[in-house]
Structure formats: structure tokens, C-alpha cells
Amino acid sequence: MRKVSTMMAGTMVLAVLLSACGGEKTMNQRPESSAASTQNAAQTKPDTSPETGAGGQKDIQPEDVAQALLSGNYSGIYKRFSPEFKQQISEAEVAEMGSDFIQGVTAFNPSTVMLLNGSEQRVWTSDAGDKGIFAVFDDSGTILGLNITGLSTYPDSDNALTKTAMALPFQGEWLVFWGGSNVLNNYHYEYASQRYAYDFVQAVNGFSYEGDPLRNESYHAYGQKITAPADGVVTGVVNDIPDNTPVGVMNEKEPAGNVVVIDHGGEYSFLAHLKQGSVTVKKGDPVKAGDVIGKAGNSGNSSEPHLHYQVSDGADLFRSRSLNIRWKDNNLHPLKGQTVALKPHIQP
């Protein structure tokens, strides 16, 4: 949804190739939750073993996909598609779109890798930064989804950081599920109102949940304390939106769900998808960096418990512009697949 973050904490399972021209979709399915993608991955198997393909040639491994595409090895790539993926697109279509896509590209550089809930997600960008590849694999190297697209950049706003230095708005270690300055690492980037937003989950041993994926309580992020990223005044609170049942059930009528908005002096933090009834502040309250303002939940346009965090230039989430965050830790540049935590010397 374009209005606010959908968690989309998972994979583009069965997502079909996007055209190289301007990123226009030829066919695409909505990303599923990470828990659902685990179940789907278990049902899909490659045509041959991940070690050796027909004729004794080594099959393409996840790290090889971008180079295989650049070298025109469309047959090798297609062989690694899951059976369900092959039903969505033919080898001839892959070859046609792939050959158009690689025109003018001399190299694809690895950008991010994320291992979560039994799947592996990889992103590569072209040497010029104008094209990108996003691929999803199961644990045997089967390609569950592939997205090739043109990439837009916004250097003026990319380089304009907030005046306020922010701390990470939570305690402990969290995984960056969406974050970065291209649409493949951060799907928010396409929209000015969300461009520099982040989605954070918690992962333990490579999984965001343990037990029944249909229960919010199974998710490591659920109920974790969320804190003010900097001093400010609370200007907005929603606290009564029910949490969704995980795995694909979302509340698009209340996209932000339970949310706390903090004014840092003309720059506004939005901490969204909080647990129903967990907010501990009210409108007009002053807060200090590190103060607990609520707990992570699964309310609003969210498919599993997580935190959506962004800073905007206005108090209206949908009519304001997202701002690129200046972090208190100068070495912090949260990117998809990274695990981040507050360093002791910069604790609020």
C-alpha cells in the first residue's frame, strides 16, 4: 500500500520478472509474510540437485545469479526456478527480458544478503546504479522469486540528513528487513512520504518467530519495548487498533495501526504498528531519548509483528516528506539484512 508501510516481512514468492524499462511491471504477486514464505519454500524443489546439473555442469548457486544473467545463461537460471515459478513465466520470456535488461551493464555488484525464516534474499545493483536484481531462494538454492528492474535515485534528499541526531528506537538487537536507498533494499523508497522509512524485526537463529506462525506471541519482536529516538514532545497517539493475526492478514483501513508521533522541533518521528493498548504516553507529553513509548505489535497494514520507523518533515504521515535520518552513531547506516543495536557509549 502506498500510504504507509506494509510489513511484507518475507519474500516475493512466485514474483515474476519485472521489465527493465522504467521498472514497469509485466506480472507480479504481492510479497508474502516471512512465515508463509517458509511454508512455501518447503514445498518447492529444484529440477536437479544443487551440486550438479545436466551434463555434469555445476548448477547456478544463489551468489552466481547476477553473473549468470549478465553472461546470458538464462537456461541455467530458469532451471533453478521452482515449479510454481515456472508456471508463471516461460524460459523464452526470461531470455527476452534478461537480454533487454543487461544492455549497457558491465557488472552487477552485490548489495545485500538477508537470511530469514528459511529463505535467502539477495540484491545486486549495476555498476551505474541504474538497474537492480532481487532474488529469493529456499535453503536448497531453488529460485522462488526474481525481480529485475530499473532503479531511480534521489540524490538531493538522500544527502539531506535530519538536523536531529536519532538513536535506534529500541533495546537489544533487531534485523533491518527494509532499509536502504533503492527500492529493492527498501520498498518504501519509491514513495516520497516513506522514502527513508525502516522496517525492523527481531530474529533468533535466523527466524523471526518460534512456534505457531499464526500467533503474534510466537514472534520475537512482539511486545518488545519501543523507545523515543530523541528528545521531543508527543504530538499524536493511536492506541486502540487491534493487532492482526500474522501471515497475510492486514488492516488497510488503519495503515499505521497504533502509532506514536514525536515532534523533535519540526522533524517528526513516527513509530508505527505498535501493540494495542501498549502506548505509555499521551499527546503533549515531553519525552527524552530512550523513554519507553510503547511496545512492538502487529497493528495496521502489517503482516507480522515489527516496527516501522521513519522521520518526516510534518505531522501528517501521508502528506509529509520522509527525511533521511542522521544517526547518533555516525557509523550506523542501517541496510536490509543487517543486525543493528545501540552501542553502549551512545545509549540515550
Rank of each mutant, 00 (worst) to 15 (best):
A228V: 03
A230R: 02
V233A: 08
V234R: 00
G236V: 11
V237G: 02
V238H: 01
N239F: 07
N239K: 14
N239E: 08
N239A: 15
N239R: 12
D240F: 10
D240P: 04
I241G: 00
I241M: 06
I241L: 07
I241F: 02
P242S: 12
N244F: 14
N244G: 11
N244D: 10
P246C: 09
V249N: 13
M250Q: 04
E252T: 14
E252M: 13
E252F: 13
E254F: 10
P255A: 08
P255N: 08
A256C: 07
G257N: 03
V259F: 00
V259W: 00
V260T: 01
V260L: 01
V260N: 00
I262G: 03
I262E: 00
D263C: 09
D263Y: 05
H264V: 11
G265Y: 07
E267F: 03
Y268I: 07
Y268W: 07
S269E: 05
F270W: 07
F270P: 00
L271G: 01
L271D: 02
A272R: 10
H273I: 12
L274D: 03
L274E: 13
L274I: 08
G277A: 14
G277V: 13
S278E: 10
S278R: 08
S278D: 11
S278K: 12
S278G: 13
V279K: 01
T280S: 15
T280M: 14
V281H: 03
K282V: 15
K282D: 10
K283L: 13
K283F: 09
D285E: 09
D285H: 09
K288C: 06
A289T: 11
A289P: 07
A289N: 07
G290Y: 12
D291A: 15
V292P: 04
V292N: 13
I293K: 06
G294R: 09
G294P: 09
G294N: 10
G294Y: 04
K295H: 12
K295N: 15
